[in-house]
Design a protein around this nucleic acid. Sequence first.
DNA 1: CATGAATGAGTCTTCATTCAT
DNA 2: CATGAATGAAGACTCATTCAT
Lengths: 209, 209, 209, 209
Amino acid sequence: MPNKPPTTPRKLPRQDRSRITVEAIIEATTHILVEEGYDKANTNRIAERAGISIGSLYQYFPNKESLVTALMEQHAQEMVELVGMKLERLFDSPLEIVIPEIITAIIAAHAINPRLHQVLSEEIPYSERSPKMQQANERISILIRAYLERWRDYIHPQNIDLTVFILSRTVDSLCHAAVIEQPHLVSDSQFEQEVSNLLLAYLIKNPAI
Amino acid sequence: MPNKPPTTPRKLPRQDRSRITVEAIIEATTHILVEEGYDKANTNRIAERAGISIGSLYQYFPNKESLVTALMEQHAQEMVELVGMKLERLFDSPLEIVIPEIITAIIAAHAINPRLHQVLSEEIPYSERSPKMQQANERISILIRAYLERWRDYIHPQNIDLTVFILSRTVDSLCHAAVIEQPHLVSDSQFEQEVSNLLLAYLIKNPAI
Amino acid sequence: MPNKPPTTPRKLPRQDRSRITVEAIIEATTHILVEEGYDKANTNRIAERAGISIGSLYQYFPNKESLVTALMEQHAQEMVELVGMKLERLFDSPLEIVIPEIITAIIAAHAINPRLHQVLSEEIPYSERSPKMQQANERISILIRAYLERWRDYIHPQNIDLTVFILSRTVDSLCHAAVIEQPHLVSDSQFEQEVSNLLLAYLIKNPAI
Amino acid sequence: MPNKPPTTPRKLPRQDRSRITVEAIIEATTHILVEEGYDKANTNRIAERAGISIGSLYQYFPNKESLVTALMEQHAQEMVELVGMKLERLFDSPLEIVIPEIITAIIAAHAINPRLHQVLSEEIPYSERSPKMQQANERISILIRAYLERWRDYIHPQNIDLTVFILSRTVDSLCHAAVIEQPHLVSDSQFEQEVSNLLLAYLIKNPAI
DNA sequence: CATGAATGAGTCTTCATTCAT
DNA sequence: CATGAATGAAGACTCATTCAT
């Protein structure tokens, strides 16, 4: 296997001017990705859109891939923080409270820039998923797992790892698909209600629905 | 908007030799896509792998996109047939029978060539999803809908369209993710059991689980 | 060590048209190298000069380096043939005959396109010397060695390997430097005479000069 | 012809700090050239290695070429001094003493940093040879010439200019090639002996070898 | 209808050099 | 005088597509 080029940003911006540049690059990458899609996007246009020279772009990002990676990691980080914050605050709240809250939050997160999420999750080759993203997903799994352990007595399925997998995948894919394919569902509390029902019916021992 | 190039094959192969050529091209496309991924794949290599000249490839497919589209449509068609066959045969069987059967079948379909399914669903730009695929998905939805209507009295959720959406998405994404990320789950009947539980618990009125 | 890109031509030209193209590329490379030097030379200009598109150039040569390598190997091959032919024909002639003949021939070879030889030997990074060139030099050494063994009884120095090294280096560097730095020497039989004297005085046992 | 940029250092370092900086730059250039070769070397990395900013580098050297030129001139100067010192001290010593001494000294000079000498003599485009270097070579020729004149009566070849050319080229190329291609020869007094024999046999009238 | 040589627009990336701070 | 962010021309190389044979 050839040693892959790095995807970590080249240098961390110290001065204010640089930080502005890096932000402009990220913003431009987002914009171009949203407007053109992954494989029509090109670094020259990104630089142009960012209002900087192509050389400056390469001062901060070693290659095209690293631009996308930065965006994906940023998104993954936001998701970790979102779920983390919710679960921390609601650690002692029962499933009936937590599940709808998280669904609402994740839909909201996806709805901020649906097209970007779509490009990021549907068009980026799997090979560009960075270790940092794996870690982010890992951390989310750990958070969910801890919560499920806390409420184990009230939960029907016994294989916790499998449950974590099913939960996280189901929520993510349904929220994603809703935002992309059925945007009208997003503003519809019925959708959130039904997804909650799906998960609660599965999870809860002796459900009283 | 620039008038997009066609994605339908240029001519239907009437003669045997042509059909063989087309099949070779499809096979080669599959192979290259699996080995290299979407954006490392190129038409010259596909032609080479198919054992024909690049010129001949363009005799049958007007452009690169149409190759991928053909593959995706073929796959979509297989899925329609799969679900269609199951539901037709099991139209009068209750959910407890149908759901596990379909899950098993879909997992099996994904497991035939997991990497191909991955490339097809994760790396192909959305713009290349053809109308035919939409129709295929549509038809699956119609089949599921019909089945759910048939068993409406035993089903808890009332918004059938929404239920179809949730069902199809959940099954597809879980099976897909299982095959790709947790291949060990595939040969594990527990996984199928749990996915069935997830859906049955949601769907069935007064479940007796 | 990263796996270096290949320097062998991509495909051997089968059709006449292709052979003409390859020849045009070689000619253009020579021309550009002579006119601009190694690091001002660029593939786009070479293609332009060859009257073909840049794409065609890359059909036959996988990268810039391979263009130069082809030229160097061609030159090395010519040198092997030159020395080989001379030594074969003159294998049984004494040093007093062979040395001047070879010097004359090598000067003539260098004088055909002095600037090209200069660029090839002075500006090409050592790293681009291909195995084939090593072999060519090796073969020349073997030829010289065989000749020296044949005439061993008349030769003063005893360490043949060292003598081969000294001989080949001296002839090559003097002829090269003469053609480049003192072109007026080239048409001057005195120069050849003196170089011959240098080597003969060294080699011949009990010289009668 | 475009007016070529200057290759002389921008300002002579009067203050100590400046001289240290210039030396650091030269050292860094040497290091990068040795490690990376001429055309992988770049000014940013040289500045970094020198521990200064790229801006400061351009304070002392007007362009990349001038860095290399400074190095080459330094090297040429060393060679002049080396040969000058030897010939001055040994001006009245006969060839049998002088030739081996010079060969030993030149091999030693090449052996200090073989890779640097290689890069300097094999990879630097001819266009970057500065007038100062020509002068240095000129001065060496003058020194050798003076010595040969002094011992003219004992020397066989009559054309002194040609002899100077042959001598200097032969010594330089053999020492260079030995150090680069046959490093094992360097520590071998036999090599020096043979090169001496080569030259002495040529030069000395009625040799008594 | 097959071939495959040819095309060239398009893309990533480098690096010598400048100049505002 | 030092800094290092910014510049952008330039160059290597790819690949979908065409078309003469």
